[in-house]
Amino acid sequence: MLEFCLHVLIMSAIFGIAAVSLNLQAGTGGLLNFGQIALFGIGAYAVAILTRAGLPWPAALPAGMAAAALGGFAIGRLGRDLAAEYWALATLAVAELVRLVALNEDWLTGGPQGIGGIVGLFPGLDGVARALATLALAALLLLGTALMARRLGQTQFGRVLRLMRENPDLATALGHDIVACKVKVLAIGGAMAGLAGGLYTLYLAFIGPDQLLPFETFLIWTMVVLGGLGNVAGAVVGAMLVTTLYAGIPFLKDAVALPSDLTGSLRVFAIGSIVLAVLMLKPQGLVPERLRRLHAQRP
């Protein structure tokens, strides 16, 4: 049971980073990135390939972040002239492309079998000690990511992103190059998502194309929508709740004697229900975006 709890917490922290990243792009910048899992996947595969080649993880992880940042930059440049909705569709297509490349380029990605047997984090430790060390690392990186995202949301950078979200023409009229802002936030979000993907690979010692299905993107979206778009703390809370639920559902089958092939569908059903319930009952999420009161702050 302790090991299960640690597992859920580690996964919460990892997906928390991915959710904070999506929240910066979609919550603050209003960018409907439906290809978040591609950025996660680029980081995950980069770390897998590099550690397989013998690179230690402290070097592979930043490299994976850089690769995913480049991916974010590319997605931003790609659709720079597209309207928001069409760009959202394009991101979904890009994510599927990334998954198909991972599925088919056996020489690089191991094809459908993925890349396994990765030397994970803290190979010197065992069992609970290893899980605790992994949790500490993941939690620390989540904290760092969340603080960074919060800071970026508070300064002029975030202010321009929010103005871009609500009225791009006004942002342009005030002299802000919204394409450049979009590319910047996608590169930053990409690096964060790549960090989450890299951690994921290192923790599970495995990455495969099935981890990059579009459903994973919607899972991250569910976390952000449940927590509250535009609020960093909300993204972390949403990631914890969704991850716990997702991991907890298999236990339900023991409790209520459900056939085991139902748990997969039940998970999808639960995620869908959450999204619907939030959108109908509390569209601003559990921790809504707050208005920044700059004037009152002054001494």
């Binding site: 609500e166 006004l170 005030l174 920044r292």
Partner: peptide, 19 residues
């Protein structure tokens, strides 16, 4: 300036000024 400014609902007056 715009005929209808359509200012953001989730930004404060001062934040719009700073932008």
């Amino acid at each position: 300036s715009f005929q209808l400014p359509k200012l953001p609902a989730r930004m404060s007056v001062l934040e719009v000024m700073l932008a």
